[in-house]
């Protein structure tokens, strides 16, 4: 097989890890609260800027900056829920999606206001790894490994803890959660923090590979939504698998065509599949 194609496939798998992490966060929020945070990728952008400024501007060690970014975006997630979602939780879900659309506008332009439209890079030079004849970026490999570790941690949390079990249960029967001693409002806040935290983690991994700018959310926000719908909104495992499928289309498509065309392919694939399997790839 063509070595460059093989490289594209491997890179697709690595990209899939980060996309899967984003899909997990969004799906978690959707599955539990039944809302779509259309500004999810913009929360990632905030995290990337936070790391950039703490690391480059204030000279913090990268790991500390990342830790703060994860916590900060988790807090942002809580605020999104408290300030935007909670007041309209009882109205049609589309309202919540649109309200977070307002947040998308706000965050994008706030970033422009504060940081300008320049592309910024943390300037970390990570080595290129040579495996056989293939060249792989160390940053991507690390991002993949951390993303998979993050997913495993999330899985452990969801399957082994009381709160995690409540998170899996709540969508199945909201009304009786009280009888279990669960306060849904608190679960929503926990999930919002968790979703934000995952966005923060994704920010740490993306800032190693990409420049940050106010519109970076647009380059992976929409694809993440499509991944979630494809996997079945709210279906964590489905979204996880769909992320790797979409990443392959993008990566291998980029090998054969241009990068934009590969995204077009991915979206068209999504649209077509929606009509074959409207409830997601893994519906029965």
């Amino acid at each position: 097989m063509d070595i460059f194609l093989l490289e594209a496939i491997v890179n697709g798998i690595l990209l899939g890890g980060v996309l899967a992490l984003l899909a997990l966060g969004l799906n978690l929020i959707f599955g539990v609260i039944d809302v779509v945070w259309i500004a999810y990728a913009e929360l990632v952008m905030i995290g990337m800027y936070a790391i950039y400024w703490l690391h480059v501007f204030y000279g913090w060690p990268l790991l500390a900056a990342c830790a703060v970014a994860i916590l900060g975006v988790a807090l942002a997630g809580v605020l999104v829920h408290r300030l935007i979602i909670a007041p309209i939780l009882d109205t049609a879900p589309i309202n919540q999606l649109l309200a977070t659309g307002g947040l998308l506008f706000f965050l994008q332009s706030l970033a422009t206001l504060l940081f300008g439209t320049n592309f910024r890079n943390i300037g970390l030079k990570l080595p290129i790894i040579e495996i056989g004849d293939m060249f792989l970026s160390y940053a991507r490999l690390m991002a993949f490994v951390v993303a998979v570790l993050g997913a495993i941690l999330l899985w452990l949390f969801l399957s082994r803890t009381f709160t995690g079990t409540a998170i899996r249960a709540i969508a199945q029967d909201r009304q009786i959660m009280g009888l279990m001693g669960v306060e849904p409002k608190r679960v929503y806040l926990i999930v919002s923090a968790l979703g934000g935290g995952l966005a923060g983690l994704a920010a740490c991994l993306l800032v190693l590979q990409y420049d940050v700018h106010p519109y970076i959310g647009l380059s992976f926000g929409p694809i993440t939504f499509m991944i979630c719908v494809l996997g079945g909104l709210g279906n964590l495992l489905g979204g996880f698998v769909a992320a790797f499928i979409m990443a392959q289309i993008i990566s291998v498509g980029g090998f054969f065509f241009s990068i934009e065309m590969s995204y077009v392919l991915a979206f068209v694939f999504f649209i077509v599949l929606m009509f074959v399997k409207p409830q997601g790839l893994f519906s029965k």
Binding site: F162, A169, M180, G181, V182
Partner: peptide, 10 residues
Amino acid sequence: ADNLRMGAFV
């Protein structure tokens, strides 16, 4: 088992 675990949430 998870249903029973939910019962012990308090």
